Amino acid sequence: MTEVIDGEAVAADVRADVADRVELLEHAGVTPGLATVLMSDDAASETYVSMKQRDCEEVGIEGIHVEIDPDAPASELYGTIDDLNDRDDVHGILVQLPVPEHVDTRQVLRRIDPEKDVDGFHPENVGRLVAGDARFKPCTPHGVQKLLEAYDVETEGADAVVVGRSDIVGKPMANLLIQKGPGGNATTTVCHSRTRDLEAKLSNADIVVAAAGIPEFVDGSMLKPGATVIDVGINKVDAETEKGYALVGDVDYDSASEVAGAITPVPGGVGPMTRAMLLYNTVKAAGIRHDVDVGLR
């Protein structure tokens, strides 16, 4: 029987642990604060930000939300980031991506104070991750690590394949898997949409992390029997449903679940972990800023 990896349950455990760490900060007179910035009228982005704010309230993090007109000049967003960098009550800053085309995404990410960059996308934090001295691990790859740990999936010595090479998931995921230490020590291959003979790479993989952004790109025929399959993708496809679409991952769940030893569903797998690890990073950032050991590494 294939084991279904319950991201909702693991995320709930992470949030409960984070709430305990918030209490440690409160004893030291510190209330962690997360600022979310939205410069978009995209309904999905609006929903995602509101969910993050609700998560903050649940664990005792002070949520600060700023909305900027998508037609406003880029300077308004940059100025907002500068103001949040200077605020003592803000320990983490998250600018919801994507931003409008007239805004330079790289400049946005580089403008955030690296000690408040709870997404882990600032070049300084990327460099620290690669060097094995991460300040903040990017939320989605770190969430995947937590899922593997929660389900006792051994990474040491395992053959792992990451399908996807994005700065947000693929590259940092590969870096985490090859690091020395718990959750690492895997022999890791990074594949993508232009990889030749992807099936051959996947057929030997003990762990597969699919993050290519292509609906049902990986199917059961490509997998090694008993492999652990982590599906990071979430894609809308046309379907005869009330909404007119269905959400599917980068893995064909039906065929993969017949072969895999363990697999994440979509939704309910990696998504909840991404939000939970944002809270984790915010509390860690508050601890660093105020020199309080909250026990998060």
Results as ranks from 00 to 15, higher is better:
S45K: 02
I207L: 12
R106V: 13
G92R: 07
D219M: 01
N235K: 01
N175S: 14
L296D: 09
V208D: 12
A9K: 14
G287V: 00
I81E: 12
V22W: 14
N281K: 03
T195I: 10
P32I: 08
G92N: 05
T80A: 12
T282E: 02
T282M: 03
I207Y: 00
V169S: 03
K52W: 13
E240M: 11
M173I: 02
N125S: 01
I230F: 08
E199I: 11
L198S: 04
T80Q: 08
T140P: 01
V59R: 09
H192A: 11
R196I: 08
V251Y: 04
P138C: 12
Y78E: 11
P73F: 03
R15Q: 15
G170S: 10
T2F: 06
K116Q: 12
V229S: 08
V4Q: 14
D159L: 05
G33A: 02
A205E: 07
D86S: 14
R87E: 11
M273I: 04
Q145C: 12
I207K: 03
A131D: 15
Q179C: 08
K116T: 06
E156H: 13
D291Q: 00
N175Q: 15
V163F: 05
G268P: 09
P123Y: 07
G143F: 11
V294P: 01
V251R: 01
E216I: 00
E240N: 13
L202Q: 01
A44P: 03
M1I: 07
P265F: 00
E199R: 14
A160V: 12
D152C: 07
P32C: 10
H290W: 06
A28Y: 13
M1E: 09
D293Q: 06
A44I: 04
D119N: 10
V95L: 13
I112S: 05
L279T: 10
Y78D: 07
E58T: 14
G33K: 00
D167S: 12
L198K: 04
D152N: 14
P138R: 03
A210N: 07
D152L: 05
D69G: 06
C191T: 13
V14N: 03
D88C: 01
G271T: 11
S45N: 06
G213C: 04
L223A: 09
A19D: 09
A227S: 14
K224F: 04
R297V: 15
I168T: 15
V229W: 04
V292S: 01
D250T: 06
T274A: 07
A150S: 15
Q145T: 12
H122G: 01
A285I: 03
R54T: 15
S193L: 07
A74Q: 00
T47K: 09
L247C: 06
K236G: 10
H142F: 14
T274S: 09
Y151L: 08
E216P: 03
I234H: 08
V37W: 00
G127Y: 09
V232L: 08
R21H: 13
C191L: 07
L223D: 03
E76F: 11
P265T: 04
G213E: 02
D69K: 00
A43G: 09
P123K: 07
G127K: 02
K52C: 04
M39D: 05
P123C: 05
E58Y: 10
D104E: 13
M222Y: 05
E57R: 10
